[in-house]
Write a protein that binds this DNA or RNA. Structure first.
Lengths: 144, 144
DNA sequence: CACAATTCAATTGCGCACAACTCAATCAGC
DNA sequence: GCTGATTGAGTTGTGCGCAATTGAATTGTG
């Protein structure tokens, strides 16, 4: 009665493959910036507004301190961010951009175009995909 | 000019988030089977047809031997597969299901329904999402 | 046949992801 | 003010994911 599910019929595998392919397309461009994809995501958040605490970055990106703490140390080693204990709440660590970290945003401006060029989808399809994925992610999160 | 790249960056992050959310929804069900998500994907391929070489599994799943070799050893330790050197070509390692590995497919039949239930999307939307993701992945791969 | 090139699996090294835990700082109740 | 609960960051351990390398088996070419 219960049949073995088939790989190619599964939406979850399609998501898994597409996500890996997207980061693979970004990899060569991000290599030039000296960033990995998760590091790039952290920098994107900081370029929007900084400083941000580790907690805030985690909420924004869906990552916990087990992932972020060593990642942020690597960004600090690269000279892109600075980690400072908050004065008001000494439990918090505020992540500040360095001048070098701020300057990197200019070189990163062309990164997203890479995916647009490679996607092979119309702007309308991309917009619909984005919308569907957003609703899917929200529904999945509320199911956990 | 800054509009399209912005949208596409969001599509990339939307893929990353949706993929993580999907595996998070599967996690409790797969825990009951004693499998991780990538291990489940390998079992899906083997349930369709076996034995398969490490190379074939890698082509099917987009994974290399650096990922698959230790993963397959863990599946062997669990008693779900057996690794045998091929007689015709001694470079190849054929992955065979054990009786226990074959039996697990029955308990796995209900797994995909979990995502469908939690997705909050209509069957038509899920089908369209699957189609769009397939075309996106193909286009991205041809761009690497 | 010889032997260089290729193929296949395994290994090493690095960087996520995530669960489980520790520890200090803060807050809430009394 | 005290004390128990909570919060925030860090650490440890396990398992991917991928690049680069190794080494054995096979194939292609002269």
């Amino acid at each position: 009665m219960t049949e073995a599910p088939r790989l190619n019929h599964q939406v979850c595998f399609a998501l898994y493959s597409a996500s890996k392919a997207a980061t693979a397309v970004y990899r060569p461009v991000l290599d030039e910036l000296g960033l990995t994809y998760p590091q790039y995501l952290v920098m994107l958040v900081l370029w929007e507004d900084e400083p941000r605490s580790v907690r805030e970055l985690g909420t924004e990106l869906g990552l916990d301190s087990g992932t972020l703490s060593p990642l942020l140390k690597r960004l600090e080693t690269l000279g892109l961010v600075e980690r400072r204990r908050s004065a008001e709440d000494e439990r918090r660590v505020e992540i500040h951009l360095t001048d070098q970290g701020r300057a990197l945003s200019e070189r990163a401006g062309a990164v997203p175009q890479r995916l647009a060029d490679a996607a092979g989808l119309s702007p309308a399809e991309l917009a619909q995909l984005h919308d569907t994925l957003g609703r899917l992610t929200a529904a999945l999160h509320s199911a956990i």
